[in-house]
Amino acid sequence: MKQLSMRRVAAIAGSVVFLVLAPGTLAVYVPWTFTRWHVSPPLLGFLPFRVVGAVLIALGLPVLLDSFARFAIQGLGTPAPIAPPKHLVVTGLYRYVRNPMYVAVVSLIFGQGLLFGSVGVLEYGMVVWLGFHIFVLAYEEPTLRAEFGDEYKEFCANVRRWLPRVKPWRGTGNVTK
């Protein structure tokens, strides 16, 4: 029991550090370098883009924090490839989309682009999404298939990579939730 608690504390600490370093840099620092959080005129002169941007930020942040917490508490690891989870995480928002962390980071970036009226941040967001997509296809999915086998294959067969399901996936009983 004590070993499990220590592992969980280490996973939480590692996840917090990784949260600050990776998503903090990609979704906060880099967009800030584009805008200095100065509000420019709305894109295409369309004020509702600002509202959409604020909604994307408001939705993206709790998704990101929830996903990180699940990796540490349930998966007993971090999102960082050097300290991956010990258990496949398929609860919470993972029942809707396979990559809620990446979706959240891109949502935060696009939200800032729309809120601050920055085409540069929106273009940067596209580059980040493309980088995530390539990383998921080339490294993450093959690694998870090798590590979690049929459990991960079942998850992939039922939960889409980028577009969330309308109803949560409940599994067939073969996957621990």
Rank of each mutant, 00 (worst) to 15 (best):
A13M: 15
V16T: 04
V17S: 08
V20M: 13
L21N: 07
L21I: 15
L21G: 06
L21Q: 04
P23E: 07
P23C: 04
P23Y: 00
G24T: 06
T25G: 10
L26C: 03
L26P: 02
V28A: 09
V28W: 05
Y29D: 01
Y29Q: 03
V30R: 08
P31K: 06
P31C: 13
W32S: 00
W32V: 00
W32G: 12
T33G: 01
T33C: 12
F34V: 03
T35P: 02
T35M: 09
W37M: 14
W37E: 13
V39A: 06
P41R: 13
P42L: 07
P42Y: 07
L44S: 13
G45L: 07
G45D: 15
L47S: 13
P48M: 01
V51K: 03
V51D: 02
V51F: 14
G53P: 02
G53K: 08
L56F: 07
L56E: 09
L59P: 00
L59N: 00
L59R: 01
G60K: 03
L61G: 01
V63A: 08
L64T: 08
D66K: 01
A69C: 10
A72L: 07
I73A: 12
G75K: 10
L76Q: 15
G77N: 10
T78C: 12
P79A: 08
P79T: 07
A80Q: 10
P81I: 06
P81C: 02
I82G: 05
I82H: 12
I82W: 13
I82A: 00
P85N: 02
K86I: 14
H87W: 09
H87S: 13
H87P: 07
H87L: 09
L88F: 10
L88Y: 03
T91H: 06
T91C: 14
G92N: 10
G92V: 09
R95S: 00
R95H: 04
R98S: 09
N99T: 12
P100N: 05
M101F: 01
M101A: 08
Y102A: 15
V103C: 11
V105E: 14
V105P: 01
V106R: 05
V106Y: 06
S107P: 04
F110E: 08
Q112V: 11
G113T: 04
G113D: 10
G113W: 07
L114E: 10
L115K: 03
L115Q: 12
F116V: 05
F116W: 12
V119Q: 00
V119K: 01
V119N: 02
V121C: 06
V121F: 05
L122A: 01
E123P: 00
Y124L: 05
Y124T: 00
G125D: 15
G125M: 09
G125K: 09
M126I: 09
L130D: 05
G131L: 14
F132D: 15
